[in-house]
Design a protein around this nucleic acid. Structure first.
Length: 501
RNA sequence: GGUCGGUUGGCCGAGCGGUUAGGCAGAGGUCUGCAAAACCUCGUACAGCGGUUCAAAUCCGCUACCGACCUCCA
């Protein structure tokens, strides 16, 4: 097993990855708050971690991947402003029970994850299903002196926490002195909080509030951040390997999460923090609240103002994989057009490769060495902080080789049977198992595949006869008509192949 | 204002001290009945100005611009 290096947001450096327990990985990723449909930016983060999950498993790690569903407690504004939480607001607007809202958008989220071919996590805990654990954590925090109760709400005392240790602010790069010095003026406006940076861990519910639970401090609901602390602890322990999420969660969400975990059990939760960067649209962060977002369905249907045509889910996935997860990625029509072609080229090469059978004499040469090197490098790229962009560039160099084998430009004599089999297996593994792509390029809908293939074999056969007798009128007519049906015929030295565009 | 991060050829996007990233587009060629595909060759890019170094897109400093977070957001 090779050594994986991970960029740790906590240290700002790339570090060798050593799991707490050999061969096992505990990974927690912040999931969605299910109060609205997922937008494309959300999908990028989860796709990034899906590839990480897949790669760790491919390398033989036993991974417990926990990704939560937040269905309570996530406020729209600050507590003191009397803001309602997202679930309650959505419930009122749609005139549904909060749990109906949660159900609706959880199902939608799962469906979208499936469309993007993201594997489900090992455990997907919900905030509402872990109220007792969260109450317990609030008690622990109070017991340790890092919380205080005011009028039925409980706040986390960031100042005391920051004074007692040097943990707070480390992840997000906040300077504690600034925090402490922060605006004495602001303090005057605080009704309940002792300091602006303090945050609610338990929030008192008014009688009309739709989601509320009994607690030692009266009826209320848990604060945002708390569910992740409680659930990661429950399923992965007080200390685990990897914690991930979108870059925009670094502060305050993740910073506060660390504070809560430390405050409750004196242990910083994750050893490696990973942050996926934002998807950009028009050069700015995709954000629904800012009105700068595209919904996945709009992209798949082409029904939007940003793009010239519809793009399939796998084209989008491929597009995302062409950039490193830590970089921002700019979405544009030109970029997607390019990704679409690249994706097809990759898939067609894969089909060609699987269609080849070894007929060489097995003389290892420079060619043989190059192929092995490229495969090794692709894995090394993934080991180096999951660099899918770089790994893909190796695969495309292999696409060249594969096409050359197919057309006979390079003889299979130049590689050994072992290398040939390795290429066949690992090229496929990489595309499907590690990068999690699906081949959308072949066949029609499911179930029709055999019929379509059979028909196409027939058509191609008829055309081949026409070509043999130099009946160009017929052969060109077949090709043109198929073209109108968005089927492209490609004539090669060993017969013709077809694809649906 | 504070804290980070970025600025790479026509577009997207890797690289993070010395060796061709890659995809798309473009040019020329090979193959082919033609076309498409495929294959071969080619563009010689690193915001600007200084500095360190035998050597910088890569390190340091300054300037300009862009973005993220500091309010809810993956």
């Amino acid at each position: 097993m090779s050594t994986i290096h991970i960029h740790n947001s906590l240290s700002g450096k790339k570090e060798a990855f050593t799991p707490l327990k050999e061969g096992k990985v505990g990974m927690y990723v912040c999931g969605p708050t299910v109060y609205q449909d997922v937008h494309l930016g959300n999908c990028r983060t989860f796709t990034s971690f899906d590839v990480i999950y897949r790669y760790l498993m491919y390398q033989g790690f036993k991974v417990r991947y926990v990704r939560n569903i937040t269905d309570a407690g996530h406020l729209v504004g600050d507590v003191d402003t009397g803001a309602e939480d997202k679930m309650t607001k959505a419930a009122r607007l749609e005139m549904l029970e909060p749990m109906e809202i949660a159900q609706k958008y959880t199902l939608g989220f799962h469906k979208m994850m499936d469309v993007f071919n993201n594997l489900p996590p090992s455990i997907e805990p919900r905030a509402t299903g872990h109220i007792t654990e969260q109450i317990r954590m609030v008690k622990d925090i109070l017991h340790n002196g890092y919380g205080y109760e005011v009028n039925g709400s409980v706040y986390f005392n960031t100042i005391k926490f920051a004074q007692d240790n040097d943990v707070y602010g480390k992840l997000s790069g906040k300077i504690i002195d600034d925090l402490l010095a922060e605006s004495r003026d602001d303090l005057k406006n605080q009704d309940e909080k002792r300091h602006p940076s303090d945050f609610a861990i338990w929030i008192k519910a008014e009688p009309k509030h739709l989601q509320q639970w009994e607690s030692p401090w009266g009826p209320g609901f848990p604060g945002w951040h708390l569910e992740c602390s409680a659930m990661s602890t429950k399923y992965l322990g007080t200390e685990f390997d990897i914690h991930g999420g979108g870059n925009d969660l670094k502060f305050p969400h993740h910073e506060n999460e660390i504070a809560q975990n430390c405050g409750a059990c004196g242990q910083s939760p994750a050893r490696y923090w990973m942050h996926a960067n934002m998807l950009l649209l028009n050069g700015k962060k995709m954000s629904k609240s800012a009105g700068n977002s595209v919904m996945p369905e709009e992209l798949f249907s082409g029904n939007n103002d940003f793009f010239s045509k519809a793009y399939s889910p796998m084209v989008i996935r491929f597009f995302m994989l062409q950039a490193h997860y830590k970089s921002t990625l700019d979405l544009s029509d030109d970029a997607l057009l390019a990704a679409e072609k690249g994706y097809h080229r990759l898939m067609e090469a894969h089909q060609s490769l699987q269609g080849l059978s070894y007929s060489g004499q097995g003389n290892a040469s420079k060619e043989d060495e190059e192929i092995n090197t490229l495969l090794n490098q692709a894995f090394a790229d993934m080991d180096d902080d999951f660099n899918t962009a770089k790994a893909l560039s190796r695969l495309f160099t292999l696409v060249n080789k594969i096409n050359s084998f197919k057309s006979g430009h390079i003889s299979l004599d130049t590689i050994t049977e072992t290398t040939f089999n390795r290429l066949k297996k690992e090229f496929s593994d990489f595309i499907f198992n590690i990068l999690g792509l699906l081949d959308e390029t072949q066949g029609g809908g499911s179930g029709n595949g055999e019929v379509v293939n059979g028909l196409m074999d027939l058509v191609i056969n008829i055309r081949q006869h026409a070509r043999s007798s130099k009946d160009w009128t017929t052969s060109d007519q077949i090709r043109d008509k198929l073209n109108e049906l968005s089927i492209t015929i490609k004539d090669g030295s060993e017969g013709s192949t077809w694809k649906i565009d």
